[in-house]
Design a protein around this nucleic acid. Structure first.
Lengths: 140, 140
DNA sequence: ATAGGACCTCTAGCTGCTATAGGTTCAAGG
DNA sequence: CCTTGAACCTATAGCAGCTAGAGGTCCTAT
């Protein structure tokens, strides 16, 4: 059915903030909706679906630029091979894994620093020493 | 010894880019250095140490605001307890762990999507379906 | 009729840099 | 001493992805 939605309703349904919806419109991620007599934005099912798509892709960490590409492919939806979608997801997966590896190294370093801390005074703080000392690899 | 450094030399020694050093000066993270007759910045050992401190803290992901606090505590270096340093590091560790957990959920979702992909055509792409379908928890 | 919440536009701000333009200085080779 | 070209200078704008604020209008329920 052609249910009609205010921007606030759309925000509630998608978990997207009102200002973010307007921002997406501004940068062309969402088509301009209709307007009520008084100038309020009026959305329909298509906007809802598109915004949900965007939100989900964003939750997986795809940058907006990539989301645009995914939307384009989704709208095409013909019999072309979906290899490009696959590639985008694989790229994102590699990024996520790389980031996890980085963060794990940080985690180890921070754990080590915290363990070393004698809980004494500023002038003999081992954590501050670690920042001050001669160049050392932060990781390992 | 009172060795003198150009901004480029400082950049090389710290692994920090020249423009970033100027940026740090601009936002008050680094004190204004002396100048040569022609107006070039001239740094000394103190700048080098301070910048190294900043870099190391940044590598661990502390935001600049926190680095300011750490620098202040490092410069105090009296017999006050170092609990605050400890707290900052512990906070950062919690953030890192939370981020790792988030990313692992993303990793699992992306792996699942990629595994589902039948490598066929756009109109029956499972990955796109996942973005399009009804609301589902992305994780688990 | 009116209150107050939801909506409107516009501009500026956030983090942490990075990029560009258009010019000046410095150090090494001839 | 002079030239060349790398390194330096300032100033402004841009990136991602929103978020916040000011100052005003609309809509709906009582």
């Amino acid at each position: 059915m052609g249910k009609i939605l205010s921007i606030g309703a759309l925000a509630t349904l998608t978990g997207c903030k009102v200002v973010t919806i307007r921002y997406y419109e501004q940068i062309g991620m969402l088509p301009e909706p209709g307007r009520s007599a008084g100038g309020h934005r009026v959305y329909d099912r298509h906007h809802l679906e598109r915004l949900r798509f965007i939100r989900r892709a964003r939750e997986l960490g795809f940058p907006l630029k990539t989301v645009r590409g995914l939307l384009a492919l989704s709208e095409r939806a013909d019999d072309a091979p979906c290899a490009e979608v696959d590639r985008m997801a694989a790229t994102r997966l590699r990024e996520v894994r790389a980031k996890i590896a980085d963060l794990r190294a940080l985690e180890a370093t921070l754990e080590r620093l915290l363990k070393q801390c004698g809980h004494t005074t500023l002038d003999e703080c081992r954590i501050l020493d670690a920042f001050r000392g001669e160049p050392v690899d932060a990781g390992v």
